[in-house]
Amino acid sequence: MSQPSNWPLPAGSSRIRLPQEVVSQLRQHPFSKDFYPLAFGHYLDAQGHLVKRAIHSNYLLIFCHQGRGYYETEQARGELQAGQLLLLPKHCKHRYQAHSEHPWSIYWAHFDGPAAASCMDILGTSPDKPVITLPDWRELRSDVTALLNLQHQRLTLAQAQLAATLLRKLLLDIANIRQRARQVSHFDLLALERWMKDNLHRSLSLADFADFVGLSRFHFSKKFRQKTGTTALHYFNDLKIKQACRLLDQSQQTVRQIAADLGFDDPYYFSRLFKKVMGLSPQHYRNHRIGEQELPST
């Protein structure tokens, strides 16, 4: 079995190797025999990091979160930058190293098992395209932290099972991030607008809109502005003001009541927003429309 390198650890880095006895138990246990970790760790500011393997008997995941480095296999070569993940399959001869002036900081894991063979399909990589970009990788930090915190405990079978579960979850979360990234250009603006109109009585946030379409806040904001030329909150507030105009025209509700119906706790803020959009206050708008309706016909 190929092992992690013995490269000297920089300050703040960690490397966890599962004992061979525990790995053997993982291979036999029904909960982990299809997928199990062998080693994992975090190299921080990895100046001089260089690894060459002619024979590689397990799967290797490397995620760069800072700096950059280089990789080379028989089928692919390139640069690995911050926010990118490299997945090397079993039996893949490879070489990788940190950039000399801007060395990478990387999270990494060696893993194996029959189910590990499907990781490239699940994550959307291939031997000739082993790198993917993860724009929302920061949401993975809790999973990574939980995995690395196991270094402070004795690696019994129970702890190794937990490591296997955490690593499996981490890979599934990466796959979900990839899926959301593919959907960025396809969210349905009309469906979102209908949902906004159904929720004009609520005070919604950017996170609410992003969750509805299944994107991160960053990618939702970027895509929404591309589609509409404005922000989602501005768009939502414009819908509220249009509804406020209808209520001022067609009902006897007070301005305070209308503000409350549209999710505004502060009627004075509602009035300021209304004036900003319409050019006059809600009461002046109502009085003006009533005056127009009372003009005698000629």
Rank of each mutant, 00 (worst) to 15 (best):
D143H: 05
L157N: 03
F224Q: 00
L157S: 13
L189W: 08
Y235V: 07
F236Y: 15
L171Y: 10
A181W: 12
S251F: 14
H201C: 09
N199F: 03
Q243H: 10
K223P: 00
A158N: 07
D238P: 00
R154L: 00
L247R: 07
R225I: 01
D143E: 06
L150E: 09
N176D: 13
K240R: 06
R178I: 05
Y235A: 11
H186C: 14
A244K: 07
F224S: 01
Q179M: 15
K227D: 12
R178V: 10
A160R: 00
D249W: 10
A175M: 15
R182A: 11
Q183M: 14
K222W: 08
F212G: 10
V255L: 00
A158T: 15
L233I: 15
M196R: 02
L162A: 10
R180T: 11
D198H: 07
A160F: 04
V213I: 13
L204K: 09
M196P: 07
S221T: 02
S216F: 00
Q159P: 00
F212S: 03
Q183H: 15
V255M: 00
H186W: 09
Q159V: 12
Q253N: 14
G214H: 04
T165P: 00
L140M: 13
F212W: 04
V184S: 03
L189A: 13
T165W: 05
T156M: 03
R202M: 12
D173Q: 14
R246C: 05
T228A: 06
T230F: 01
S221C: 04
N199D: 11
H234K: 13
L167G: 01
L172F: 13
D249L: 08
L170T: 10
H152C: 00
Q183D: 12
A207K: 09
E193G: 13
N199A: 01
V184G: 08
A163S: 09
I241V: 15
C245W: 03
R178C: 08
L189Q: 02
L206G: 07
L155P: 06
G229H: 13
A163K: 02
R178S: 12
R225H: 06
Q250M: 07
N199E: 09
S221A: 06
K223E: 11
W195G: 07
W195N: 15
L172G: 14
V213N: 01
K223G: 00
W195E: 14
S205D: 11
K197T: 10
H234D: 14
R217A: 03
E139D: 15
R182C: 12
A191G: 08
R154A: 14
F187Q: 10
L157W: 01
R168M: 03
L248I: 09
L190I: 08
L215Q: 06
F209W: 01
Q243L: 11
D173H: 13
A146W: 08
I177M: 05
L239Q: 15
